[in-house]
Design a protein around this nucleic acid. Sequence first.
DNA 1: AGCACGCCGACT
DNA 2: GTCGGCGTGCTC
Length: 832
Amino acid sequence: MYAKVIVDVPAKQTDRSFDYIVPERMRRWIEIGSRVSVPFGARKLQGFVVDILRETDEQLPEGSKIKPIEEVLDIVPPLTRELVELSEWMSGKYLCYRITALQSMIPAALKAKYERRLSVARGAEQEEIGYQLMLLPDQVEIVQYIRGKGDVESEKLLEKFPGKEDAIKSLVAEGILEETQVVKDRMAKKKVLTVYPRSSGILEEQLAALPANAQSQKQILTFLIENHEPIFLSQLTVKLNVSASAVKALGDKGCLTVKSVESYRDPFADREFKTTRALKLTSEQQEAYGLIDQYLRDRSHIVFLLQGVTGSGKTEVYLQSIQSCIEQCCEAIVLVPEISLTPQMVERFKGRFGDLVAVLHSRLSHGERYDEWRKIRSGKVKVVVGARSAVFAPFTNIGLIIIDEEHEASYKQEDSPKYHARDIAIERAKHHRAAVVLGSATPSLETFYRAETSSFRLLRMNERVLGARLPKVEIVDMREELKAGNRSMFSRSLYSAIQQRLEKQEQMVLLLNRRGYSTFVMCRSCGYVAQCPHCEISLTYHRNSGMLRCHYCGYAEREKRQCPDCESEHIRYFGTGTQKVEEQLCALFPGIRVIRMDVDTTAEKGSHEKWLTQFRSRQADVLLGTQMVAKGLDFPYVTLVGVIAADTILNLPDFRAAEKTFQLLTQVAGRAGRHELPGEVVIQTYVPEHYSVTYAGQHDYHGFVDTELRARKDRGYPPYFHLILITLTHENVPLLIKAGETLAGDLKMMWNEWSRSESIAHAEDRPLMHVYGPVASPIPRIKDRYRFQCMVKYRGDLDAAGMVRQACHRLELAMNKDKLQIGIDVDPQMMM
DNA sequence: AGCACGCCGACT
DNA sequence: GTCGGCGTGCTC
């Protein structure tokens, strides 16, 4: 019996399976998806079994190098066969290594940790040491130390004997010490002391026999007689306010046993969730739910786009669909953007489905995450709610996958494998014959286009559940403000709107998509602009710390009073960040209470929730922040939403800039007036005539989409063309340009050959491919490496990814040892 | 990615 | 004449 194993080495040369013999004792355990430890060259590595060959004929060809598997690392394989197959699909689609795809599917706790241990070799006898072998005193000491411990981890040994690497090395070389390698998990399973009561009869007997002064023991026995089941020691002592010694005394008397038992860490252990019932659906909701339900019952694959305006009650449709899914004995995955995975969100799911829900989000510790994951793998839960990576939940019978706020950029992973959770969800759903529900008020153009043209089914919900009206939106032209002599960052409209809320004691949300204080620092005399020395990007001024910071690599330097070039003192700070807005608010409205939320104030764990809770309980008037304040928040007393500068995203070098601006404006506008109080929105901009701003002001998604689709079609962007972005980085620019030209040239040649071999029809949708570049990336240098990129645009039935793979492969061969880095992003979200 | 093997310069 | 530099190539 052989196993094909993908080993834990993300490199081109090892990006294939290696064959291993499965020893007799492992045959009943090993499965496709098993995690194993295998010898690989001189090392021992973790790997994943991707295939098993049950060949009985084990005659190996002469000189065959095949080795046996060392160990199967889990009783239950961490991956299902379906996920193993999915990893193959992923590596083809996103051009990543197979192992990278596999690793992204398992919790970090199962990432291998490699450990080397040293022990004294058998045969190295006590007397020999120091005499026959002529060891140094240090070495004798080391050997004695190891002999005393049995074996010692290499790193620990070095800590104990610092600077003695050579002494240890020669001991190993001479065969006195032996080195073994171990593949370990990163995380131990949590063990909890648990009290197991003996039979009730024994307990009652002992209770009667207790001396009168044994109050605590009496209490414990009474409790255990009433609740005759195992209980955690810690829970028992807290509940009854007794000490562990009293429990131990009862253990000695034979009333109970205390065992260390593997347990799940439950991050919600001390939270109680109010159970909720299904709400009555509106007719729109009912219609959407009915159709989803029908597909769940038929068990046939489909993708729905559930387009509902903010406040139309999408979540209730999700909840009832999940209920139906569970009733069909299937499992459900719910993806939400990381930022909206708040306790309130979790509560809605836990409240409805209780213990059947596992929650996966980034705030969990590795251990907690692993425990939630095990509940999924073992079938203890039927629903998982989580951010992007929860799409890999190891369920075996998925009926429904929901992606809320489908248009969110955070569903795209920015490092390898650069997958999009939406693609993964659809691929998995095909396999399980499951339904996918993509929910959004402002669907991405890709999704909307597919719903309009072909494969997705569109469900619409246009009414707000509580009958609340969409808020009135005022668009303020900041150029007019300037003409009228208003040089402040608040227009007259916004100023008076804020004033009014303060008087009425209502709350407001202000959005500015830039953190820090000033966005760039320039010398008025010579034009010098403070830049990061490692990244070609201007530094942002942070007033609190008095530092200039790079938002890409974290570089920081002290603020400047004098120009470093011309020594003039005409250093000025330009642009506006959240810090500056906060300062101005406090200056203009004395006594105003502001909560600022951005990466800088929410770095600390749990601070995000802390701020929101404070704001919800009306301890502040203003919630000021970057886009993180725009998503999914729902505060009854917010009646004003102000966008300080709607153009910040619009000016980015990104073909999705208009789409993102429209989505952001629509989302924030939806924050106002969701309850009884009517809402008002003020959007400040220098380009009030831009269609992304005007359509957002009219809450007109379709108007926006029509215009934007036309623009995309004209310029050859998604959804009409697919993109592949190839980024090359190197310290040396000429070499980089040469590499880029080689790459682009190769790709163009490949396309020409392909198109010549096909009979090209002159149809609208005939396959087509364009190659652009090399050009400098929008951020031309990061961490001292220059960046150039090539862009492939293509449409139709054409294996562009395959061509890119081949071209990059060739480039790597031609330029290997030159430390050229190649990054490939299929369907990029960002053009950086 | 590591790690071993192998071929050339600065030392006892 | 040996130790060790890191270039090259392989890992079932």
